[in-house]
Design a protein around this nucleic acid. Structure first.
Lengths: 341, 341
DNA sequence: TTGTATGCGTTATCAC
DNA sequence: GTGATAACGCATACAA
């Protein structure tokens, strides 16, 4: 690589001082228009590009934010939330001149080890916190590090982090109302891992809706959000002495796996078994039957989260934002229970 | 944030010189064991973390590599290649102490604008080049920037970049052989965008296989790799005066869309229409019928690519690696054509 | 074996 | 309005 062009070179070329070049290049005032013009022209002509390391060193800003994901690869590879979220984040980050540093951690320990290195090492100015678990140690860590952070879909404890949430309660309540209005009385729940905060919340909505309808809580099984685990859950539920007539799943991928396995067992959806998803991924409308689900907005969640994070980094206050609630999507995977149930 | 701990602080605390601290911390020799011990202990106790900016500034290394993706969000959100590839990349990058900087570009121009800024600005030490197009301008750019690069699934022109490829020809040839052996004579191809190099290659395999079998090339339609475009293609193909009896798709998502739309039109798969995919995504085995496809290995592609890139950055030569070929996965979406065809 | 001095590219604080 | 100059945190050549 040819020796890099620095502001020193530009200064020499334009016949001005280094400080003048810096001021001109950064649009600070106190520079004569003609001088500024000359500097800009020289920088342009010489192909000057700012060195992020030099800039970062003195500005004490990394001009980058981090996303540390800790999910099994099997889920990540199929879950469109991830890509949608990233897309939203980028629409905000890029114009603001910030980069996105990504880490796919194999274990939670890796995440906790990486965070301080990133923060103290000046790799990132802030982080997104996704897949928040109960008593998540990351909140204490960002607080201790004074690292700007934005939590996704959860209210952070203390004042440690900003947050952006999309209400899933109302959508899920609508979903339960829909299923119950069809006449189902044995409504199972295929939940996500117990550790995730949102898993517990969705579970609670399901439980409350059944209680309000005067129904006993149906069987509950857990998956890990993967299609595979949905298929496994189908076996578990259909092998019960009294199988449910409807299954409310914590995400679409598990619902797809469940529908698939049910079909393989000659259990017709929705005639014999109603199934609902959660997320509203595109694919959900292309399987057969199309999935009744609740549509979330990962892209919007990402863009809003990035806004909050940049604001926080710029010295803004901790803030808690909400985007439009996740809405019900009625499709073909739900129907009245078979007669006699 | 409390004032950061620097090697100066550690030096003072340990009662030695800065250079000694640096040498001790980086495992260089020329430091007395007891001194090293004392330094390490002090650094540990004071919570010293290396400043990447300081280190980068003097080492002229960013300790990060970049991935610039330029794909429509609709594809990215559903395509598991992306996440699988990232997962593979991380398994290599992380132990080596490198970070991954990600950019989701909205347009090709954005990519070409960002590359020099990243390279010259010291944001990354190298880049991955995915979704390579014909006459891709990025190769000229990495060459001009002398930026280490690894191209994925394509042989880069000139000696500009390393590459890692997974042969898809043989798998696709096997697939075609399978379809033709079933007796199909009107085999359509649902191709990807013409601009992508691998789209053209897959198309050629299809064309050659038909020619070898003495069959005229069946109808060819193009999609954009999204499920939606697969559904659209189903309409286009089934509305033909002489619809094909088999459709070979350039990826699984389009195949899923096609199967879905065919089902909605009461065209039974595979009895009336055989459909094949490409990629071997997990979901492919959970739709009904499970998809006959060719299984690729994005994770392995990613890990190998990262190895090549780090090697290149460390001064190694340009290298072209191959991973195991993509293999045929036979499933339920293919069958003999209906009688009379 | 240890200490000193210098430079990496930038920004910012001062005199002028 | 402009120009020296001192940081920022680290690594390293060289001197002691």
């Amino acid at each position: 690589m040819a020796r890099r062009v620095t502001i020193v070179d530009v200064a020499r070329e334009a016949g001005v001082a280094i400080s003048t070049v810096s001021a001109a290049l950064n649009g600070r005032d106190g520079v004569a228009p003609t001088t500024r013009e000359r500097v800009l022209e020289a920088a342009q002509r010489m192909g000057w590009v700012p060195s992020m390391q030099g800039r970062s060193l003195v500005s004490r800003r990394a001009w980058a934010v981090g996303l540390l994901l800790q999910r099994p690869a099997s889920v990540l590879e199929a879950d469109p939330f991830f890509a949608g979220f990233l897309g939203g984040v980028e629409t905000v980050l890029d114009p603001a001149g910030h980069a996105l540093v990504l880490m796919l951690a194999a274990t939670p320990e890796k995440v906790l080890e990486r965070m301080p290195r990133w923060a103290l090492g000046g790799v990132v100015d802030g982080v997104f916190l996704t897949d928040v678990q109960a008593d998540d140690p990351r909140f204490a860590m960002v607080e201790e590090l004074a690292l700007p952070a934005v939590a996704i879909n959860v209210t952070p404890p203390g004042g440690a982090a900003s947050s952006v949430t999309q209400d899933h309660h109302s959508g899920l309540r609508d979903l339960m109302a829909h299923v119950l209005s069809l006449g189902h009385e044995r409504v199972a729940h295929l939940a996500g891992p117990a550790a995730f905060v949102h898993s517990g919340e969705r579970e609670q909505v399901w439980r409350d809706a059944l209680a309000e309808a005067g129904l006993p809580p149906g069987p509950l099984v857990r998956g890990d959000f993967s299609t595979e685990s949905g298929a496994k859950a189908a076996d578990a539920l259909l092998d019960l002495p009294e199988p449910p007539t409807a299954v409310v799943c914590a995400n679409d991928l598990m619902a797809i796996g469940l529908v698939s396995r049910a079909g393989a067992r000659r259990v017709r959806v929705p005639q014999e078994l109603s199934v609902t998803g959660f997320d509203g991924i595109r694919l959900a409308s292309y399987i057969s039957p199309p999935l009744t689900t609740v549509r979330t907005s990962p892209h919007h969640l990402g863009s809003r989260a990035a806004e909050l994070l940049l604001d926080r980094i710029a010295g803004g206050a901790v803030e808690h934002a909400h985007i439009e609630p996740a809405g019900l999507v009625l499709a073909g995977s739900t129907a009245p229970p078979p007669p006699g149930h």
